[in-house]
Design a protein around this nucleic acid. Structure first.
Lengths: 115, 115
DNA sequence: TTTATTTATCGTATATTTACGATGAACGAT
DNA sequence: ATCGTTCATCGTAAATATACGATAAATAAA
């Protein structure tokens, strides 16, 4: 690997951080729960379950859509939002791979390094 | 469950979002990789591997420390940073539980809901 | 056609994040 | 005691995120 590359961020690192960003607000965590567990899909229904204004919820939905975690199907004036389970699976894999990678280094402790 | 509770965020939702926030920057994703895989622990060593100034890296380390993903042991003028593997495990569990919960709703598709 | 419903977007205010240079504090080495 | 090294913190600028009211667009219902 080229020496300078070490100082850059990889695509994997950037993508993982981007997904984490999409999950970095309680409202978005909750919206995904709602969409995956309740027979609910319209923006207005979600608004009724959150302590936020409609415009704000719409913004959060947009952020989740941006990274593909949900998709919206427009039906006239309404929009039906649903979890994109394919993305969820891909994301689950990426995250668990990352966390496993971290855990592999468990033998490297502060005591080992300080020497 | 009380009716108003639905409109609030739970502690679990807030905590999960908070961890996601700590992971929402490529630099912090990479710092955790570095600390878990290389025999590296000092701030200066990490700075050498990132395209960021020392002050900025120090800030990112602070954020990772805030949520307990790393810990720092001061040794005179130096500080030895290490991954906190206990936290990593707890976080891994929380995240995988959450993603499993989402995946359980897979039968609830847009088509089902629209009807 | 008019009205009501639903949602996205605009405008805007405020808060937070990110980044960096400069500086100070802590210590080891000379 | 002075100097060099290491790192955290301060000050600050710029960018991004969060929140909401107002409004526009789309359409169903009257």
């Amino acid at each position: 690997m080229a020496k300078t590359k070490v100082k850059e961020f990889t695509r994997g690192e950037i993508e993982l951080a981007d997904v984490a960003k999409a999950l970095s607000h309680p409202a978005r965590i909750k919206i995904l729960k709602i969409l995956s567990s309740l027979n609910v899909c319209m923006c207005g229904e979600i608004v009724d379950l959150l302590p936020l204004a409609q415009a704000t919820v719409s913004q959060h939905l947009k952020e989740l859509k941006r990274v593909g975690l949900i998709q919206g199907e427009i039906e006239g004036p309404k929009t039906c939002y649903c979890v994109n389970f394919e993305t969820i699976k891909k994301v689950s894999k990426k995250i668990s791979q990352y966390l496993e990678l971290l855990n592999k280094g468990e033998n490297i402790s502060c005591k080992t390094k300080k020497k």
